[in-house]
Write a protein that binds this DNA or RNA. Structure first.
Lengths: 351, 351
DNA sequence: TTTAGCACTCAGTATACTAGAGTGCTAAAT
DNA sequence: ATTTAGCACTCTAGTATACTGAGTGCTAAA
């Protein structure tokens, strides 16, 4: 592996120290750092000339670059990557911050509200954009199914799933059904499927469909279809994720190019690319970071994304992320993302 | 009225003609217009010097201004206002456009979907931002109410309102109720309130509450509370309006200042100011236009807003709008807003 | 009342110059 | 074999200067 080669062969302690100081300084100042300054800050008691030699090496290896001949050096993507992977000194969380997050995430009741709060926290605490995917319901447990007759050959089907959630659908039928007929059908289905996973339930219903009384067939069919829709994430109005603080990104010099910014915002709206990126993180455990072009999407070329899955009872329910300029304080953002993910999971659990 | 004074006293036909040409030209080009050019374009067969005299008058009256000494003139807010009020020649709608709008608004079923489509159409057809408020349900007609027993002393209440809409709420009770008890309660409530407006229903229930059997009181109470919540726009997750195409606004030179742009986007997100503005339009009949500072909100200083209420059966349900730079083609945008409002109303009616 | 003519203004652009920051390289010092 | 001092070189950013073109305002004539 080239990274290890680099580390073993030529990136000695001094070079690493210099890179670390450079990255940290650049993250806070945004200014390229010259050899003179770096020599002073590094506390290594070496002359600027020596620093220059080291920097030339680092540049050759692709960890830093110079915006122009007579500017100092700035980190490259590869430089940030090394910094993030091997020389991060994560800032400890203050008590204030922890209490604020946990307060915001417990005061809120609805699930959407929680997601919104979490996204707002990520954005507010980092002054960047916060993204939270809605919790996945991949294990939808059917608790109860009921039918209610409506007028005009319509039947309201009610599915109660996962403790508290309720899903409705109006089914158009060929004829009127009376209340007792519907109760019968519901009883039958409940007996067959209650307590099961929706996928299982669906399969069972499909199996039994042939054996069922002729005049109920259609209703059963509808019920099955309904289940299918619920299973395959029925609601097209419901968003996939919530973004808060997009406009924060307009403050950053690095993103002030209006065309790039537009590309970024469009990416948030169109969702495709961004969802792909977040999906990639759902299987990774813990924090995952994409720096600059690493994400593979042009719109995110000048951004870094710090992601973490969040879980309820060890089962991963979704992903949250902070999106900001490549030059962000990873040491500050990482613990915030981590904390929010953990507390969001807990909050969802308590629901 | 000063406007009339202006018109009667000093703004003769020629001056109006020149202003009209100037506004139209500036809207398409974005360039200040000089006297030489304007003389040619106006088809009035007058010399540039004469035009200059007229322009000096118009400037004195506040209809035009010069960005600097040696530039041509551009319209002021007041100039746009006069243009929009008295000299607009609205572009006729093409058949293509009408069919596209009506197709987009009929293919879609859900209410949210319709609003989203309308907003998308406004945005797409104008290359600016489209805004549509969600339809108001101020006359919520209760069709049917049902209760279902759940486990753990919980009851699921189902309200069917306005033809097709369904609202659920889970009510925690003091003891278990069996199915027939609940059916009884539902029957009682249905008899009392079915077909009525929710506000009326609530009042009726409150009146009757004392007469009702003791052990049902609590359930009734819950039902009433539920109704109240539904009435007072229960769902906090549901947005007030939908904005599509915000990012389109980034293309316009006039709005390219990143701070102004941020202010504008924040205004969309925070909703307060914008909702106020839209509320002001709900009572106005037909198209209403806010040019530049006329709206009274700083964030919209460099923007114009073209709004129209939309109605179902003559009852106004909401407002839609196009937001773009002051220098927009009012002659093109106005009919688009008008058409979309009408067809959205029709589409909602057919639901 | 309209027009021609002319002096004037101003944004925008190109050019040139300077100062400052920082580098790379060489040769001496450790 | 490293490290350092010294120096020439490069490039940005800022400033001054001049020029051009577009367009105006004003005056005096038509």
């Amino acid at each position: 592996m080239t990274l290890n080669d680099d580390l073993n062969s030529s990136l000695n302690v001094r070079a690493q120290q210099l890179l670390k100081v450079l990255v940290q300084s650049y993250i806070t100042d945004g200014q390229p750092m010259g050899s003179r300054n770096l020599a002073k800050m590094s506390e290594l008691d070496i002359s600027p000339a020596t620093v220059r030699n080291v920097m030339a090496d680092l540049e050759e290896m692709g960890f830093v670059e110079a915006p122009h001949t007579s500017a100092g050096r700035i980190p490259t993507t590869k430089g940030y990557r090394l910094f993030v992977d091997t020389m991060l000194t994560v800032q400890p969380l203050t008590n204030d911050l922890v209490t604020r997050v946990s307060k915001d995430l417990t005061s809120n009741l609805s699930m959407n509200g929680l997601v919104e709060s979490a996204s707002g926290l990520l954005s507010g605490l980092t002054s960047m954009a916060g993204v939270v995917t809605l919790p996945k319901h991949d294990r939808v447990e059917l608790r109860q199914i009921e039918f209610l007759p409506l007028s005009d050959k319509r039947v309201l089907a009610i599915l109660i799933v996962n403790q508290k959630e309720v899903q409705n659908r109006i089914i158009h039928t060929d004829r009127e059904y009376n209340r007792s007929e519907l109760e019968q059908a519901a009883n039958y289905l409940n007996e067959l499927c209650a307590g099961q996973d929706l996928v299982m339930a669906r399969q069972k219903i499909l199996q039994e469909l042939d054996n069922v009384r002729e005049n109920m067939n259609e209703l059963m069919q509808s019920a099955v279809e309904m289940g299918e829709k619920v299973f395959s994430d029925a609601n097209p109005d419901e968003p996939d994720y919530v973004v808060v603080g997009q406009t924060n990104l307009m403050e950053y010099e690095e993103l002030s190019d209006i065309y790039k910014l537009r590309g970024l915002f469009d990416a948030f709206n169109q969702k495709r690319e961004f969802l792909n990126l977040l999906d990639r993180c759902i299987c990774a455990e813990g924090i995952q970071i994409f720096i600059g072009q690493e994400s593979g999407y042009k719109a995110l070329d000048d951004c870094s994304v710090v992601t973490s899955p969040y879980a309820v009872d060890d089962e991963i329910m979704g992903v949250l992320a902070v999106v900001g300029p490549t030059r962000m304080s990873y040491e500050r953002v990482i613990p915030i993302v981590d904390l929010t993910a953990k507390l969001l999971g807990e909050a969802l659990n308590n629901k």
